[in-house]
Simulated assay, not measured.
Amino acid sequence: MTEIKEQSSVQPMKRFKKVPIYVVEEHNDALQFIYSAIGGKKLPIEGTALLHLDAHPDMLVDRKLKGEEARSGRKLLPLLQIENWIVPAVAAGHIDHVIWLRPPWAKQFTDGSRVIQVGDHPYTGLLRVDSKEPYYISDALYSTELKNARKFTLTVAEFSNLKLKRNNEQELNKVIDAMNICQPYVLDIDLDFFSTGNPFLSLYENIGLYDRLEPIFSFKIPENDDVSTIEKVIESREAQLKELENIFQHLEEHGDLQNYSGEKSHTFKMVMDIVTAVSVEAERLNEKPDWWAVFAAGCTRDQGGLPHYINTKEGIETMIKESLALLLKRLPPPVIITIARSTDDGYCPPHQVDYIQFLVLETLQEIYETDEPILHYLNAST
């Protein structure tokens, strides 16, 4: 049993003398510092809120992750990726309110609050949610039957520029009221919140690969959202994703589909066309095709693709030095602050990340009494 699970949720919390700041590269690495704060009794074992500023919700679940793995304390950490690190911590009971503040160009969820249950599928033990939103249905993550279920609130609000003008006070109050945040909470900032790249746009861009993947990976959200209809959609989507995974697994292992033993379906034929085009382009570039990268790109095409907005220097400065500062001054201080650079994978533009990080850290240190930032990304193994 881990130190997190041994702690009682009713024990009095200790306090950091100064607000610690942890800067990581990959966003899922932030969770280890949240767990450390729980283990050190600086955060409660249950009932923490996460204020998440990001161009991406990071609220998916690995389709192969079991509920018992989500509740395994630190053993969970190596199983996580950047898009799916939050909900497993919710399933373990540590977080019960996620507030996703999104930039205007990120629209993966509609604004507002909703209560979602997360738990174990009764037959497979896999972690699933009862949300019918396209974000979850597109990954076949919906289930009506859940064991060890936990309820949490997901609040989504748009955060646009709030310049220091009197007529923006009403807009600021609207955002704060929508968040409904209370202590204790973790302030979590992804630097791609301020300028966002879609790294898959440049993957074999000369052949328009990203757009060509859409008809292969997309699916139609049903207009009727009754349980029986959604369950049929989930079954069909699960089969589609499994077939695509098998095809690309074969490609990764063999480099072509000549001896593929699966069904030669319409999906298979569409992928074959992509394989031909990618192989020719890769040969022209004198490189070996990265089929898992192609698969990963396709998996982002289900609902129109990832957000992409390369902000100007002036736009970045306004968002941080004016809007962010104005918002944080109106909120109670967080227990800890986590920051993700998200630049090695191309989500925060590499030519802007250091400047964004400098401005964010400068602003946080002006508002809070903080420790010197711990730059985890400099020492983390690659």
Rank of each mutant, 00 (worst) to 15 (best):
S228N: 15
D188W: 15
S228F: 03
I207H: 09
H250E: 09
L141V: 09
N180Q: 02
H266E: 13
R150T: 15
V175K: 00
P215M: 11
E214H: 06
G197L: 08
Y260A: 00
A178G: 03
Q170P: 07
D177P: 01
T196E: 04
D190T: 12
E205V: 05
Y185V: 05
Y135A: 02
I137V: 04
F219W: 15
D188Y: 11
L209S: 04
T153G: 01
D130Y: 04
N198V: 05
R128Q: 05
T155L: 00
R237W: 08
S236G: 13
N168P: 01
N224G: 14
F152P: 02
F200S: 05
R166L: 01
D130T: 04
Y123K: 13
K242P: 05
T144E: 02
F219K: 09
S202Q: 09
G255D: 09
F200A: 08
S138R: 11
F219V: 09
L203H: 11
K163V: 14
D211K: 02
I181A: 00
V129H: 00
Y204S: 06
I176P: 00
S218D: 12
N259L: 07
F152A: 01
E214P: 01
L141S: 02
E243I: 10
N206S: 12
E238M: 09
A149L: 00
H250A: 06
L164D: 10
H266S: 07
I216M: 08
T124R: 05
E171H: 04
L126D: 03
V129L: 06
E253R: 15
D226L: 13
D139H: 15
V175I: 08
K242T: 14
F200P: 14
G262A: 01
N161S: 13
L213A: 11
F194I: 06
M179F: 02
N206T: 14
I221S: 07
P215H: 09
T155A: 00
F159K: 14
S218P: 06
N161A: 13
P199Y: 08
I247F: 01
L203D: 14
D130W: 02
V227H: 11
Y260G: 02
E238P: 12
C182M: 15
I137Y: 02
K147R: 09
E223H: 07
R212M: 04
L257T: 05
G262S: 03
F194V: 14
M179P: 03
D192H: 13
F219I: 10
P184F: 01
I189W: 09
Y210L: 13
R212V: 08
L141G: 03
G197K: 10
L141H: 06
N173K: 10
K147P: 00
L244H: 06
P215W: 12
K174W: 03
N259P: 06
L203S: 09
V227Y: 08
F159M: 11
I234A: 10
L244A: 10
D226V: 15
I234G: 05
Q183T: 14
R128N: 02
A149N: 00
I176T: 01
H254I: 08
D139V: 15
D139S: 11
Y136H: 10
V129D: 01
E145A: 01
Q183R: 08
L203P: 04
N161T: 11
